[in-house]
Design a protein around this nucleic acid. Structure first.
Lengths: 217, 217
DNA sequence: TTTTGATTTATTGTCGACAATAGACAGGAG
DNA sequence: CTCCTGTCTATTGTCGACAATAAATCAAAA
């Protein structure tokens, strides 16, 4: 068993992230250190560190001497976040598809089926988690740690977006199909195809979310 | 005139970066907060913040409850950093080459010439700066702010590496040629070519540096 | 000698207080 | 009324001290 010794800072990071996810803190809202410190009954030092960390993940925005705010993502930001992730994950997969075994591939296929199932049952959180696992399985096999790190940083952000919007954008069967396409691409064992397919996957979703946010389409 | 009001933290970030660049702080070395605070005659708070920031840029490495250390890049890390940057900058250029005017292109060409000149005169620092400007010109035109931000984060790291190794790796004329190839690629106005060319540019340099570090070749 | 355990030390983690400042507000001049 | 100016307030920036802990040291036991 792995023993975890989370510092206050780590717990605060987690806390704020969940608050944003739950909508208890809204975009553009300022997060006041003193206030949060009082709420959690700790000093401002660990709070500050947590804020800085979340800023580096792009979830918060910092204006010197003014404060830290929850980012308010414009449609463009959303699209950009998704395409950036597509670029990184696409590359990651294209150089590491070989390290995915037949068993892994079977597994990915099963995940697609299960996504459909969860989507039908409207098990939002579980679906998100599974989607995350799916993509993680793919880019975690990438040997380029630098790329993995950058992708992970972006994933927090896209994760947040997707959890808000997915049910309005895709039907359960679409979700399955869209991910099966990725599995097929990987099976083709052609790096170019793999990279392009994954890039496309994200670009599409990014466009869809940003369009939805812009015009409610 | 723009008035700058750097906080202590910002100055410390700058200070540490230069110290690493100058070799006054070496890889694997621990940066002790209290010690640095005393040296600079300020308290530990801004120091800590600076350290965290540099960690997020990948220049320092943080081990909880133990300390912050200058990263010691293994050949693999170097190669990975470069390829990651190539992936991002390549993509950036491929979607934004159109916003580079004819004048910009002329300018880039001139920069290539000047690189050769500076390399011959062994004006290391100026060369580095110019190289930076060259690449920045390219990826700054990219509308995807997300990609730009990620690229910038990586650039600090690759910058540091390149400044150490470049003279051992390329002759002045090679430096010119390698960058001219990029200019030509952009002139072709074919996104695929542009992306591939830039990616290659970084992959090659990454390989070269990591090989050099590994075997002194 | 080697291992174990206690003790010390150096360093990070956290704290509460004070300083500096951006933004809000009020009052007065034109 | 509008604009400027000074004052006030809320919030971040910095500070020095103390707490917790990882690593080094040393002593004792096997």
């Amino acid at each position: 068993m792995k023993i975890k010794r989370e510092t206050y800072k780590d717990q605060v990071v987690h806390f704020i992230y969940k608050e944003i996810l739950k909508g208890n803190i809204k975009p553009k809202e300022q997060i006041k250190e003193a206030h949060l410190a009082q709420t959690l009954n700790i000093s401002r030092a660990p709070i500050r560190e947590a804020l800085k960390e979340l800023v580096s993940f792009g979830l918060l925005e910092y204006r010197p001497r003014i404060g830290t705010f929850v980012v308010d993502m414009k449609p463009d930001d959303i699209y950009e976040t998704y395409t950036a992730r597509g670029v990184l994950e696409g590359y990651a997969a294209s150089i590491s598809y070989q390290s995915l075994s037949l068993k892994d591939m079977e597994n990915l296929k099963k995940m697609c089926e299960e996504m459909e199932y969860l989507a039908k049952k409207k098990e939002d959180m579980k679906l998100i988690d599974l989607g995350d696992k799916f993509h993680q399985k793919i880019f975690d096999s990438c040997k380029n740690k630098q790329v993995v790190k950058l992708t992970e940083a972006l994933s927090l952000k896209s994760h947040l977006l997707f959890s808000q919007y997915w049910p309005k954008l895709y039907t359960p069967s679409q979700i399955k199909e869209r991910h099966l396409i990725i599995v097929d691409a990987i099976n083709s064992k052609k790096p170019d195809i793999i990279e392009k397919t994954i890039r496309n996957h994200y670009t599409e979703t990014g466009k869809k979310i940003s369009d939805f946010k812009e015009k409610g389409v």
